[in-house]
């Protein structure tokens, strides 16, 4: 008989293993859920890891207030179906409480401010581990991060002081106040995620599929018009058929022109593309060459 596991089965099994290690090693874990395809994949993996039991962790969403409504609606319906606990904390509240300064500019993004809300929610619930959907193929700072990544009490990542991570042994021992960020789909690529979504027949927010949308064309990228974006006289407003390759904030995620209305079409487009996921869709990573490295060091996911 053929024992060989298909590569998607291998990736799935590794991710389930990592989730169960988190559940086995920590007292108060949580799963960071954004409503994007990577965290939706994590939820499917959690079902495979823990059903028929309940998840040994709540889902946590840091709501920037700049989300796509479609992603929020999807989140709520998914949580209802799952019958699991969801914790939502709002960046807007943190801004008020901590008197933080809102970023300004045309595409003023609260992406960096999320970190404050995240650290507060960790403190509030005394979370000792947070499961996240980051992948190493996304970005070069992520490519260096461990699967169990220890953060100090300020949530900071120190790339030079990472623990060696050997075999499948994950050292989750931490001091009080520290926490671990755990990344079960570290070894998945964007295409792996899409192939898995297709295989598992998973549902996704509608914005991942081609739809008509009013966009501003800005430096070659298409940004959806929304109340969160400062409209200017010279803006070129277009109606385009687009889909989203990643789902972040409306202020920092660009759409891609597409006719892909079904999952097969999307997989084919991803195979054919010559631009990386972040490069095509993220406005915030281009600011400096070390943008992600800096944010991670400051407690970002």
């Amino acid at each position: 008989m053929n024992y060989q596991l298909d590569y998607l089965d291998q990736l799935e099994s590794e991710a389930i293993y990592i989730m169960r290690e988190v559940a086995g090693q920590f007292e108060r874990p949580a799963l960071l859920f954004s409503g994007g395809k990577d965290s939706i994949t994590l939820v499917r993996l959690a079902e495979k890891a823990f059903r028929p039991g309940k998840f040994p962790f709540p889902l946590v969403h840091i709501d920037t207030g700049h989300n796509f409504q479609e992603a929020l609606d999807f989140r709520d319906s998914l949580v209802k179906k799952l019958d699991e606990k969801l914790v939502v904390r709002h960046v807007a509240d943190t801004i008020k409480e901590k008197k933080l300064t809102e970023p300004v500019g045309k595409f003023a993004s609260r992406n960096a401010l999320q970190t404050y809300t995240l650290l507060d929610v960790i403190e509030e619930f005394k979370f000792d581990a947070l499961i996240g959907g980051a992948r190493r193929d996304e970005e070069k700072a992520r490519a260096k991060e461990r699967i169990f990544s220890v953060r100090d009490e300020f949530g900071q990542w120190d790339p030079k002081r990472q623990r060696p991570e050997l075999w499948n042994i994950y050292n989750g021992k931490i001091q009080k106040g520290e926490n671990v960020r755990a990344f079960p789909i570290s070894n998945w690529t964007e295409l792996d995620v899409w192939n898995y979504i297709r295989r598992e027949k998973m549902e996704l927010p509608s914005i991942y599929f081609a739809h008509e949308r009013e966009c501003i064309e800005y430096q070659g990228q298409l940004i959806a018009t929304s109340p969160f974006i400062k409209r200017e006289a010279g803006d070129k407003i277009l109606k385009k058929k687009v889909r989203y390759r990643t789902v972040g904030d409306m202020t920092c995620t660009a759409a891609v022109e597409s006719e892909a209305t079904a999952i097969d079409d999307i997989v084919n487009e991803i195979i054919a593309t010559n631009i990386s996921e972040r490069g095509e869709t993220r406005i915030d990573d281009k600011v400096s060459e070390a943008a992600m490295e800096d944010r991670k060091k400051n407690g970002y996911f």
Partner: peptide, 14 residues
């Protein structure tokens, strides 16, 4: 300074 992980695929293997 540290181990970095890179990914590529051909039709035969990841």
């Amino acid at each position: 300074i540290d181990v970095a992980y890179k990914y590529f695929s051909t039709p035969k293997r990841k």
